[in-house]
Nucleic acid binder design. Sequence first.
DNA 1: TACGAACGCGGACCCGGTCTGATTTCGTAC
DNA 2: GTACGAAATCAGACCGGGTCCGCGTTCGTA
Lengths: 207, 207
Amino acid sequence: MRVAGLRERKKEQTRRRIAAAALDLFRDRGYDNVTVSEIAEAAEVAKATLFTYYPTKESLVLGGVGDDDLAGIVAARPPGQSPLAALRAHFTDLAANPVAPDDSDAPEGSDALMVRMRVILDSPALSASANGLRYRQRRELADVLAREHAPTEAALMAAQITASLLTVQETFFQRLATGTTMASAARALSADVDLAFDLLEHGLARD
Amino acid sequence: MRVAGLRERKKEQTRRRIAAAALDLFRDRGYDNVTVSEIAEAAEVAKATLFTYYPTKESLVLGGVGDDDLAGIVAARPPGQSPLAALRAHFTDLAANPVAPDDSDAPEGSDALMVRMRVILDSPALSASANGLRYRQRRELADVLAREHAPTEAALMAAQITASLLTVQETFFQRLATGTTMASAARALSADVDLAFDLLEHGLARD
DNA sequence: TACGAACGCGGACCCGGTCTGATTTCGTAC
DNA sequence: GTACGAAATCAGACCGGGTCCGCGTTCGTA
């Protein structure tokens, strides 16, 4: 039968209670001025329990950032299409639709997203490690690209691509965090994606 | 008349003792399996003293990585030269000469450098945070590029450039770590610098 | 209804990093 | 050469993130 399972419902509930408590505290006092123990206390769970739901403090706010499977997209592209074209198509699509990656995780209204962005951008440490999250992604992409390019070239391509996408995402975050409406931020996002891929394809010199 | 100063000689000595102890332990047991207290003990200093010489455990092995002042190079370039050309010139020069940034820090023979590379590449956490070190650099470069480009474009350019340089450096490290001789690694480095800037200038599509 | 598995618990523990206040060691002025 | 101030070092307490462990509790199921 397995409609939902009380057990799993409770887990989901706890997970959200933790995320909500964390976000509240972060918003009010800043990421660095909140301890994990406080979050656990506010969410009414033990610290150890918190860490069974979220592997690190960072993941409480960064959860799901940088989860696109670039390597997969490139590997699965239709024959004849260039890697760059495949990625462009993917992200153009993504930019056209509302923010997908968050549905699995957002307990509150869409302005919870905005709070998260603000928290991230407010803490340099957090921004930097959002950056670091892309590291694995980059390596995977480089591996796939190495199937059709020299290794060093593949590594360079992967680096440029992931760096560009990260920047586009950051720019989008910044717009959201500074209060731009979602609709207009989304429009700007499409333009940014185009710009990013144009630069990637044709180089910085041309203009 | 202040030839060297006993005090400063001792400091330098201590600093090297710490670095050497750390490197030894890292080489033998891996970065993650060595405790800061152990390093301090091996170097015969108090933990607190260690931290007056090196701000973090990471800095013991990453010290001086990513210290090039990209923004400064671009800002100080001769009039009429493009930012990319200025950077290319700088790094072409750098690649032509022996490894400069290490002279201030290398206690042992040049194979200490090799050990460091191996330690870094052996620990994913370290590699990732070497990555993160570039973060500030990127922002600074973006700021100076924004003086002649639209902000988003400047951010994208800076991202691509720093990512490429990081990759070149990583590739160089990898060659050193895998035993390539310094001379031949240096030659490959020059080629990589050229390749990186060619891709940056003309794009990934062209080939 | 009873039992095993999953879940959650508090609390001890580890590690990186900071702080404190006392103690030593050097440079220098007399 | 002695005495004094500054710099370096020290041991150890402390903090926060994160792991581990042994014990209870709660749910699913037979």
